[in-house]
């Protein structure tokens, strides 16, 4: 169990490059390479891979349109990247020799912090300072601390949910692997695929909910 979890490999200046960072770079490289390969020759009539990609993008767009029908399209890069990255990162844990970057609390917290920062960013960008700040005191100014607390706690809950699910899955697989290395972890690994995709979906849809609550006029979560 000791080698579960990130180690520091080397330092770039004051920043430590851990195994998680390496895995993140691999995932990023994979995603960017695949998207370049597919979008380099976009055809009018899509091939199989392009169709898959378009299906994904359209699915995300539909989810956004359901939540924030008027101005939600500007979330698409952030939300789509979140979905792709978390999905790919969750599935990375199944590759031998690699650990899921999301099973490191740093990655999960980083993603949640980005969502935490994106909420006021898009809120101010679309509604303007005054209207956005008004949402904090929307029923009454008494609610302002609760709004702020809820924003902070939901950030941590986003991070902890993702991290806990993926780490729990990895620990279960590791324990099963220690007990019986052959065949026994396979059902759990199949389940891990399911969990990884579901967690990516949930992170994405919660992000959309938070963002659209900041963008659309009525109420906060």
């Amino acid at each position: 169990m000791e080698n579960l979890g990130p180690h520091i490999l080397f330092m770039i200046g004051p920043l430590p490059v851990t195994t998680t960072v390496i895995a993140t770079w691999l995932v990023m490289g994979f995603l960017v390479l695949v998207s370049i390969l597919i979008t380099r020759k976009l055809q009018f009539l899509p091939g199989r891979l392009q169709n898959l990609l378009e299906l994904f993008v359209e699915g995300i767009m539909n989810m956004i349109d359901d939540m924030a029908p008027s101005r939600g399209r500007i979330f698409l890069p952030l939300v789509g990247t979140l979905a792709l990255f978390i999905g790919a990162a969750n599935l990375t844990g199944l590759v031998p020799g690699l650990e899921a970057p999301t099973s490191d609390f740093n990655t999960a917290l980083a993603l949640a912090l980005i969502v935490f920062a994106a909420v006021p960013y898009y809120g101010v960008k679309i509604q303007g300072w005054k209207n956005y700040l008004k949402t904090y005191i929307s029923p009454s100014p008494v609610m302002a601390p609760f709004h702020i607390i809820s924003e902070i706690t939901r950030t941590f809950s986003l991070a902890l949910r993702l991290f806990g699910n993926i780490l729990g899955e990895e620990i279960v697989i590791a324990i099963l692997f220690i007990l019986a290395p052959i065949f026994v972890p396979v059902p759990m690994m199949l389940f891990a695929i399911f969990t990884g995709v579901i967690q990516a979906y949930i992170f994405t849809i919660l992000t959309i909910v938070y963002l659209s609550a900041a963008v659309e006029k009525e109420g906060e979560t």
Binding site: P14, V21, L31, T39, L84, D104, A110
Partner: peptide
């Protein structure tokens, strides 16, 4: 544990957003 690699992860993710926006979402949309 939270260490300074979180900064790395944030930068990584923002770079990934920019790259995927350039190479994936813009052309597909």
């Amino acid at each position: 544990s939270i260490d300074r690699s979180i900064i790395f992860q944030i930068i990584n993710f923002l770079v990934l957003v920019a790259l995927l926006f350039r190479f994936l979402f813009k052309p597909v949309v």
